[in-house]
Amino acid sequence: MTGSVTGVLFPVVDEDGAPFWEYASRGELRVQACADCERLRFPPRPCCPHCQSFESEWRRMSGRGRIWSYVVAHPPLLPAYAAQAPYNAIVVELAEDPLIRLVGNPVSAPNAPLNSVDPGRLRIGAPVRAVFTELSGGAESVTVPQWLLDRA
């Protein structure tokens, strides 16, 4: 679920996901892991879906992954995104565990507009790496991961 002050979507930070956003504000990509069976899980939740343990920790990820899927939004669904349309949204599978997938936008550089990557450059399996951008509107702000196409 998301919130919006100025038409820009913000994540609703709940108790389980709050550490993800706190680490992102520091420029770190971390994913919740079970402290008992050690499996990664995303989205964050109180109980491990594999062993039912309530013990968890947050592990730092490399920030590297691959494009699992993508879409080009024409036209935008919200007026606040109209100036950046068409823009790309991608699903990234993390290098540490391809079953952990995050949604975000590919950008040409940190803080670049959502439409800064030519959609023709996107390919399933293309390597990407995380960068972090602060979104703000009104009294709200949040740092979100975005993705750079990686040549490696």
Score class of each variant (00 low, 15 high):
98 P>M: 00
40 L>H: 06
136 S>F: 09
21 W>Y: 08
36 D>N: 03
16 D>G: 03
105 N>G: 11
3 G>V: 00
151 R>G: 03
134 E>G: 08
129 R>A: 12
95 A>P: 08
106 P>A: 09
131 V>K: 07
141 S>N: 11
31 V>N: 04
137 G>S: 04
112 A>H: 12
69 S>C: 13
71 V>Q: 09
126 A>R: 14
142 V>R: 09
132 F>D: 06
43 P>H: 06
109 A>D: 14
77 L>H: 07
69 S>A: 11
133 T>W: 05
68 W>M: 10
19 P>T: 03
66 R>Q: 12
92 V>I: 15
54 F>R: 04
127 P>A: 05
143 T>K: 08
22 E>M: 02
88 N>H: 05
15 E>G: 01
108 S>V: 07
68 W>D: 13
96 E>K: 01
119 P>T: 01
142 V>Q: 11
3 G>C: 00
142 V>K: 08
103 V>T: 15
129 R>H: 10
6 T>M: 01
81 Y>E: 13
93 E>K: 09
114 L>V: 13
23 Y>A: 02
72 V>R: 03
15 E>Q: 00
141 S>K: 15
79 P>A: 09
31 V>I: 12
102 L>Q: 11
95 A>F: 07
87 Y>N: 10
92 V>G: 09
137 G>P: 04
74 H>D: 08
105 N>R: 13
1 M>I: 07
23 Y>I: 03
121 R>L: 14
97 D>T: 03
66 R>G: 04
121 R>P: 03
10 F>C: 01
148 L>I: 12
23 Y>F: 04
78 L>Y: 14
85 A>I: 14
32 Q>V: 02
142 V>H: 03
51 C>I: 00
